[in-house]
Design a protein around this nucleic acid. Structure first.
Lengths: 131, 131
DNA sequence: CTTTACGTTGACGTCAACGTAAAGCACCCC
DNA sequence: GGGGTGCTTTACGTTGACGTCAACGTAAAG
């Protein structure tokens, strides 16, 4: 860390998470992050780091920033009234369906790649054995 | 199908897979598809459909078209010589690692969404029970 | 043979997710 | 006070993945 205990500057986070400062500022612009300011400079705390990690995980999964915002916002939604809670449950179901579709796609792709690899190794073995 | 048995026109595929004809032509431009031509018009056969399905699955997974091209090309790579086979096996390993990282991310996200949902339902129950 | 629907190839527009460059403030060091 | 480092904002550039539009060919129906 580059500051008082438990706080980080933008370059610290950028380095740690392997992104540029520009990217982090861009995410803030899009409402994905909201760090404290200390004399104009951004100061990140633990919860900001967690949010950034969530955003980057969403990115690895191929979600758009809008989708990521929707997901991350579910995490720290305040309880609220019954209607809100039911709405949130509905949104979660939608995301769940999406994620499970992705897992199916993913498992299929993995299985097929394995099949190709097996075919590959078979062929190699045959080659080495002198056809 | 809109033509002789086992062949389709571009609009047929577009409708069936829920994309526009423009998208299909774009994929061809990028080398992801290579349909037969019949008097200037594209004619798709079963293998073209399979390839399109693979491309769209890759898209759902959030891969770029370049990555998709790399993956799909592994599927119908000809055996070739030993060097080629070893290179292909290496590429497959890289893809595998990527896909497995994604699955980890995915499972974590699913688990966390479930946790949120559970919290949500608990709160709802407490609300209905009169605080 | 004309109409109508669907196809083709460019070419340019658009949107997301940043990259990059410019210009300026704050602080530290010598 | 000159130089360096690190931060800030503003603004324009870039790339990928298409959408959209114009201008034109073609195939099937009446």
């Amino acid at each position: 860390m580059g500051m008082g205990t438990g706080t980080w500057r933008i370059a610290d986070l950028a380095c740690e998470f392997g992104v540029t400062a520009r990217t982090i500022r861009f995410y803030e612009d899009k409402g994905l992050l909201a760090p404290r300011r200390e004399g104009g400079q951004r100061v990140y705390e633990a919860r900001d780091r967690v949010r950034l990690a969530l955003v980057l995980r969403g990115r690895r999964l191929g979600f758009s920033l809008d989708e990521i915002a929707a997901i991350v916002d579910m995490y720290d939604a305040e309880p609220g009234e019954a209607g809100q809670l039911e709405y949130l449950l509905g949104q979660i179901d939608i995301r769940r369906a999406d994620l499970e579709q992705r897992r199916d796609d993913l498992d299929q792709t993995l299985a097929e790649l394995d099949a190709v690899a097996t075919r590959c190794r078979d062929h190699l073995a045959r080659l080495r054995a002198g056809s």
